[in-house]
């Protein structure tokens, strides 16, 4: 349970209404019970911030778990974002209370600016290689790596959670377009399998004989 549960009468909605997709080899679902808070600070204050966060400030491009603020994503030299299990829309205040010293650390709750999509499955890397301009090979982009980039003209933050699982954090307003782009590629990759396998049978078997 989040600490601060408002009892107001307004009903929350999510960008996709919790829609999921599961083709067997790929599954996508909208992660809703998660808050996202950015911590901004001067780049020269990184040591101080690291200390406040219990010594756990990730380098830009990587993430790590923090007992204070969920998973910390190193997105900018002067910004770390916290990804926390919560349905609270004002987690910035909650985190601020947990930090021993917030001097020079500026928090902004961004939970509602983004949609988090969990993508996993055997062919999810095949899907991503048709969308994502980053090299997602494990040697370059290991588990816990995080990067902000662009997919189909939409900004996206990619977090690798497993060998074949990723979280894609994308602006809330364009989630439907983003989802459409992914779904299209998922369908293409799936339907290509018979076309390609038919082809493989022909290839090496023939010879001059």
């Amino acid at each position: 349970m989040p600490e601060h549960m408002p009892n107001h009468a307004l009903q929350p909605t999510t960008a996709l209404g919790g829609r999921t997709l599961n083709t067997g080899s790929v599954s996508i679902y909208e992660v809703t019970e998660r808050a996202l808070v950015s911590l901004a600070f001067k780049a020269s204050d990184r040591e101080h911030v690291s200390a406040v966060l219990g010594g756990s400030l990730p380098a830009v491009g990587s993430s790590l778990a923090s007992h204070l603020a969920g998973r910390l994503l190193g997105l900018q030299i002067d910004q770390t974002w916290c990804l926390i299990e919560s349905t609270d829309s004002a987690m910035d205040k909650v985190i601020a209370r947990k930090l021993s010293d917030t001097r020079g650390i500026y928090l902004t709750d961004q939970s509602d600016a983004w949609t988090i999509l969990a993508l996993s499955g055997d062919t999810c890397r095949q899907v991503l290689e048709r969308l994502c301009p980053l090299d997602l090979d494990e040697s370059v982009f290991p588990i816990d790596a995080v990067a902000r980039t662009v997919i189909e003209h939409t900004g996206v933050i990619i977090l690798r959670t497993g060998r074949d699982s990723f979280e894609l954090i994308t602006p809330r307003s364009s989630t439907a377009s983003f989802m459409h782009a992914i779904e299209t590629v998922v369908e293409h990759v799936r339907n290509e399998i018979p076309v390609r396998s038919q082809d493989r049978q022909q290839d090496p078997t023939t010879s001059n004989a």
Partner: peptide, 28 residues
């Protein structure tokens, strides 16, 4: 607003009328 939801209220006007802009987290 609405019994406890975080919100921001601004008294600004683009229409020239008495006016406010009210902001709540997008999910609401």
């Amino acid at each position: 607003v609405c019994c406890g939801l975080t919100a921001r209220l601004f008294r600004i006007s683009f229409s020239g009328e008495l006016a406010y802009e009210l902001a709540v987290p997008t999910r609401y």
